[in-house]
Simulated scan of single mutants.
Amino acid sequence: MSEAVKDRRFPIGLTIATLIAFAILCVLGGWQIKRLAWKQDLLARIEVLKTAPAQPLATVLAGVPATGGDDASWTRVAVDCAPDKAQTLPLVYGVRDGDIVWRATALCRTPGAGYGAILLDLGVVKALTGQSAPTPLALAAPAQAVGVLMAPKSLGGDRAATLTRFAADKPAPYILMVETATPAPPGIVPAPLPAEISNRHLEYALTWFGLAVTLLFIYAAMLWRKMRS
């Protein structure tokens, strides 16, 4: 077989590789479209949350399965905490406005809410901003707290590990991101919601689909040139 004939053979390997790459790019674009729908729903829920009244924690948790989930996430609730001694719980690392911050947590015992307790995220410890290895604080839960429920998996820091420490108390499968506390813990600034939530999933989806189309054009050009030579 001559070299010219070999060169004109249909490029099976190149075609398979192109199809695989094209499929991967399309899957990534489709995934970003799904993320776009999820983010739009999330932003809509946050917008409603800005004016939503706080519901009693017991009422909200009554409809939540024991395994938790996202059923009650982004719901504003109010809770009364039973008097308890101060406890030293891990500080949670975070970044806010470009600075290292540390968030304080406390355990709120809630005998009347269907669960024995719920973990409170009290907010940012102002004096610890910028520190790399701060000393843990001993904090007691406030008598009352109003905030937003969040699933541990959607938050930074190993809050889920803190919950397992109190497994005997049957803690609720959510973290209460405190907006207001009574009495307010000194030196702590409530920061229940992200300062800014980006939504660039449409841009990402168009990028992936654009790469997929570009790949097809490159493949077609290479195929045309190979078969024409």
Results as ranks from 00 to 15, higher is better:
91 L>R: 04
91 L>T: 02
91 L>H: 06
92 V>E: 07
92 V>F: 05
92 V>K: 09
92 V>Y: 03
93 Y>D: 13
93 Y>F: 15
94 G>F: 05
95 V>D: 13
95 V>S: 12
95 V>R: 10
96 R>F: 13
96 R>P: 01
96 R>L: 13
97 D>W: 05
97 D>R: 13
98 G>L: 01
98 G>H: 02
99 D>A: 14
99 D>H: 15
101 V>I: 15
102 W>C: 03
103 R>Y: 11
104 A>Y: 00
104 A>Q: 06
104 A>C: 08
104 A>R: 03
106 A>Q: 06
107 L>A: 13
107 L>Q: 10
108 C>K: 10
108 C>N: 06
108 C>A: 10
108 C>I: 09
109 R>E: 13
110 T>M: 04
110 T>P: 02
111 P>G: 03
113 A>P: 00
115 Y>L: 08
115 Y>D: 01
116 G>C: 04
116 G>M: 05
116 G>Q: 10
117 A>G: 01
117 A>M: 00
118 I>Q: 02
118 I>L: 11
119 L>M: 14
119 L>W: 00
119 L>K: 02
120 L>C: 11
120 L>I: 11
121 D>W: 06
121 D>E: 09
122 L>D: 00
122 L>S: 01
122 L>F: 09
123 G>Q: 04
124 V>A: 04
124 V>S: 02
125 V>E: 07
125 V>N: 01
126 K>Y: 09
127 A>N: 11
128 L>A: 13
128 L>V: 06
129 T>M: 09
130 G>S: 12
130 G>I: 10
131 Q>H: 06
131 Q>F: 03
132 S>R: 14
132 S>F: 08
133 A>D: 15
133 A>C: 04
135 T>Q: 15
135 T>I: 10
135 T>C: 07
136 P>E: 04
136 P>W: 09
136 P>G: 06
136 P>C: 10
136 P>A: 12
136 P>Y: 12
137 L>M: 11
137 L>Y: 00
137 L>C: 07
137 L>A: 01
137 L>R: 08
138 A>I: 06
138 A>V: 05
138 A>G: 14
138 A>M: 10
138 A>E: 13
139 L>Y: 04
140 A>L: 05
140 A>I: 03
140 A>H: 01
140 A>F: 04
142 P>S: 11
142 P>W: 02
143 A>N: 12
144 Q>A: 14
144 Q>K: 15
145 A>M: 05
145 A>F: 09
145 A>R: 07
147 G>A: 04
147 G>S: 06
148 V>H: 03
148 V>Y: 09
149 L>D: 00
149 L>R: 01
151 A>L: 06
151 A>H: 14
152 P>R: 11
152 P>A: 12
152 P>C: 09
152 P>W: 07
153 K>G: 13
153 K>Q: 14
153 K>S: 13
153 K>P: 00
154 S>R: 12
154 S>L: 11
154 S>T: 14
154 S>E: 14
155 L>S: 08
156 G>S: 12
157 G>I: 00
157 G>M: 02
157 G>C: 03
157 G>T: 00
158 D>L: 09
158 D>C: 07
158 D>V: 05
159 R>Q: 04
159 R>H: 03
159 R>K: 10
160 A>N: 03
160 A>S: 13
161 A>H: 03
163 L>M: 14
163 L>A: 08
164 T>P: 01
166 F>L: 06
166 F>R: 02
166 F>Y: 15
167 A>V: 13
167 A>W: 02
167 A>R: 12
